[in-house]
Amino acid sequence: MQNLIASSLKYENGSLSVLDQYLLPHQQLWHQCHTVDAMKALIISLKIRGAPLIGLGASLLIAHLAEQGMAKQALAAAIDELEATRPTAVNLMHCMAALRQALQQADYISAIVSTAEQLFIEDIALCERMAKRGAELISSGDNILTHCNTGALATAGIGTALGVIYKAQQQHGNIHVWVDETRPLLQGGRLTAFELARWKIPYTLICDNMAASLMAAGKVDKIVVGADRIASNGDFANKVGTYNLAVLAHFHHIPFYVVAPVTTLDVDTQCGSDIAIEQRNAAEVRGVSGSFGDVIWAPKNAHVYNPAFDVTPAKLVTAWIFDTGVYNQAEVAQGVLSTLK
């Protein structure tokens, strides 16, 4: 397999490595990953995260194992195991489906390797096309609010929603970003802030519950978020807290955009209520852990509700920014999304 290098995932000289995103921004540690169990652990612990990147990481591992001589039946089982790690993120399912198809070829090793390479390279191009389309909706001087992390750490390219912001800054300049910290795992505070600082884009970090006051004060011009799965009617699942922003944006008449590659679209899912929502460990809400150690602030046996995602209804979205185009409410209501795949 050829060398493939991204910000937080790389296959180089026959070795697959994953940047530990749980330790960012203060510690940059790369994990070598050469087994299914190792990749599953990295995905579940969010050391590798972001819907596109999870699919790509799993794909590169399968290709590596194929090259190392893993039997066809074992490869099929590995694909199934990896697909089951994150039930909401549809990119992973699309990648595993492509590998299953490659596995049926006579020269399945070559087919799997070629498919994994193509998925990786394609994601870079998808990010670039999304960014160009989305940047056209951003104006110089805009204050943009975003949620979770949707940049180069979450993809092979420059990202989805954050890629749009990056491209807009390149084209227009004078962009400022409000960064939701994104409880409970702080992907905004740790990762988006890290990427914006690296890109030299001005930003201000806020707690999630501060967004409403900013909107009421007229300090938010647009909201741009990513997605982990988009139903054919335009409803979409994204990091929990996204729905809150959509409701607030609707009340305050602020444009609300969702940015995703077509690989995030699930035409077999009719609406948001059909999307399975992953429930995560209660410990993530009772306290916080990281390179600094563990801090627990809640009673140890406190009951916790901890969905990884929530679902935003299509009626709250101003437009959907895909690599194939920008689609408004009327177009989506007429079923345009079901024609994109």
Rank of each mutant, 00 (worst) to 15 (best):
V262M: 12
Y257E: 00
A154G: 11
R190F: 10
E284H: 10
D208S: 08
K239F: 05
T242P: 01
K222E: 09
T160F: 07
V259S: 02
V267P: 07
L162N: 12
H252N: 12
I201Q: 05
H252R: 07
N233I: 00
A282F: 09
E195C: 04
C271S: 15
F251I: 13
E278Q: 14
V288C: 15
R183W: 07
V247M: 13
N209C: 10
G189Q: 04
N174D: 14
A154M: 04
E284Q: 10
K167S: 11
A276Y: 10
E181L: 10
A193T: 14
A231G: 07
V262H: 13
T155H: 12
N174Y: 08
E195V: 03
L205W: 02
A211G: 02
I158S: 09
D274L: 10
R280S: 11
Q187K: 07
G188W: 02
A283D: 15
V220F: 00
F256A: 00
P261L: 06
H176Y: 11
N174V: 05
H250G: 06
K222H: 10
I223G: 01
L153E: 04
P261Y: 04
K200E: 14
A283T: 14
S273R: 11
P184E: 04
Q187T: 08
H172K: 15
K239G: 06
A283G: 13
S232G: 06
V267D: 09
D268H: 15
Q279F: 10
E284L: 10
G218F: 02
D274F: 08
L205M: 09
G173N: 02
A193P: 07
G188I: 01
A249S: 08
A212M: 09
A156M: 00
H176M: 09
A227S: 09
D221W: 12
G287V: 01
K167R: 15
M215N: 04
A282V: 11
D274E: 15
V267E: 08
A197N: 13
H253D: 14
A237R: 00
G173H: 02
G188C: 04
H250Y: 13
C207R: 06
G173P: 01
V164P: 00
C207P: 02
E181T: 12
L153D: 05
D180Y: 01
H250E: 12
V224A: 01
V164Q: 00
T155E: 05
S273E: 12
G272F: 06
L205E: 04
I175P: 00
S232A: 15
S232F: 07
A154K: 03
A156H: 00
T160G: 09
A246I: 04
T242L: 01
I165D: 02
P261R: 04
A211V: 03
Q169T: 12
W178F: 03
A193W: 07
A276K: 13
Q170K: 12
N174S: 13
Y243M: 11
Q171T: 13
N238D: 01
L186R: 12
V258F: 07
G287W: 03
T263M: 13
T160S: 09
G226K: 07
M215H: 01
A216W: 12
N281R: 15
G157T: 00
A152L: 02
T160Y: 02
L245N: 03
T269S: 15
K167W: 08
Q270N: 14
G163L: 02
A161E: 03
V220W: 01
I201T: 11
N174P: 10
I254D: 01
